[in-house]
Write a protein that binds this DNA or RNA. Sequence first.
DNA 1: CTCACAGGTGTACGCCGTACACCACGAGAA
DNA 2: TTCTCGTGGTGTACGGCGTACACCTGTGAG
Lengths: 234, 234
Amino acid sequence: MATPPLREPLTQQRVVERAIEIADSDGLDAVSMRALGDALGVVPMALYKHVANKDQLLDLMVDVIVLEMRLEHPSSAAWKPAARERLLYARTAMENHPWAWRAIETREAPSPVALDHIEAMIATLRSGGLSPRLVHHVMHTLGSRLWGFAQEVFASAPPPTDPAQLEAAMAFMAQRWPHVLEVAAASSHDPNTVVGGGCDDAAEFAFAIDVILDGAEALHHAPSREWALPDSNR
Amino acid sequence: MATPPLREPLTQQRVVERAIEIADSDGLDAVSMRALGDALGVVPMALYKHVANKDQLLDLMVDVIVLEMRLEHPSSAAWKPAARERLLYARTAMENHPWAWRAIETREAPSPVALDHIEAMIATLRSGGLSPRLVHHVMHTLGSRLWGFAQEVFASAPPPTDPAQLEAAMAFMAQRWPHVLEVAAASSHDPNTVVGGGCDDAAEFAFAIDVILDGAEALHHAPSREWALPDSNR
DNA sequence: CTCACAGGTGTACGCCGTACACCACGAGAA
DNA sequence: TTCTCGTGGTGTACGGCGTACACCTGTGAG
């Protein structure tokens, strides 16, 4: 009799999809070849028939996420709102896959899919008439924000839960790091949730890209400054 | 007889210093407890008498580098040049220890040394009269640049060495990613060294922080925009 | 003289990525 | 029908990692 296969045969796509599911739910560190094999009901070495090694697996995972950042038709034809929309769109993809920035950071060369994303962004900026040189600087300034994330180093230290401990910590900070405390307080409307966790990542991301795009626009309209800036830094 | 010790006894400082030496010369991945033990002529487990675990070792290594970023007296009293100097100074520390950004990124809470650095930067900005709220946004916008590095994702793909291959690659790019190629060309004065490697990281870093600090200054003098920006992003 | 303790040792465990030999099975050629 | 061959899953094993835990040893205080 025609024996139906006991399980779906593996494909590269199935391997990558399952890996992304694991990363989404349990984090990037949970994606080991052994764990991924288990999740697919297969021995770890079987995966190597579909991906060259773990590095290529991560390449492929990243490509899927970067593909999610693709924005065919920005809702505005003007370069600035279009660029803004692209960046915020990339950020939503990143928000859905919080592990992805770590994977992206470890890639060493851009894949074709990544180059497509870069190309789209550059084309948007060039469509506004910004010079290639200025666009180059802007791309560097955007840095990881092109990929929808900002490396917020030391962003979120969770505050102590015990109110007494929190009080003590606040008092100590007020004495040793008064400005940090003041600024942390300013980020939150509720002064009781001052330390850590009080700020809106989406708003900060948007603020940053607005500063950068506004700066780009200013330099575009005052090209003398554009040329002066980089040379003053040697 | 008073036997002189066969070797200097281990101390936490010696352990951390040696670890930094290894990272400086062979990269962060070369710093394993086993390799570090070898380098100190000691069995790996001996290190655990001086550091709690590898994570704490990395904490301590990072603290040493961040301490190198300390700038007691900026050469200008004005907030903008002072902030600029602090950022560029942090960058030189980072340049001497190219592994450090990876170590910094994996820290989950700021150490006191790191908070001192943050405090110094915030104090500098506040000294210019910038509001706590604006300073908060600026700190987020600076992101990792506060620590002297910008995550240049996919920054440097080395171009192929074979001229024929390079020609072919350029031709292919010109067709599929024309804007990328144009912008890459603009980053280099010599059109032959166009693809990759042609740009000056120090200049890009300086450009970026100038855009950010100039943006901060503009918002400081037009506070209506400061308040408008973050709310427009919700 | 004893005793505690700081600091270095040795062994072992459970993870990781992956090299390599092996085998089951279905399709195409003889 | 039989032989062969390639595709894809298996089993075993190696060398690396961080580190838990029991152990030993030399030194200084009581």
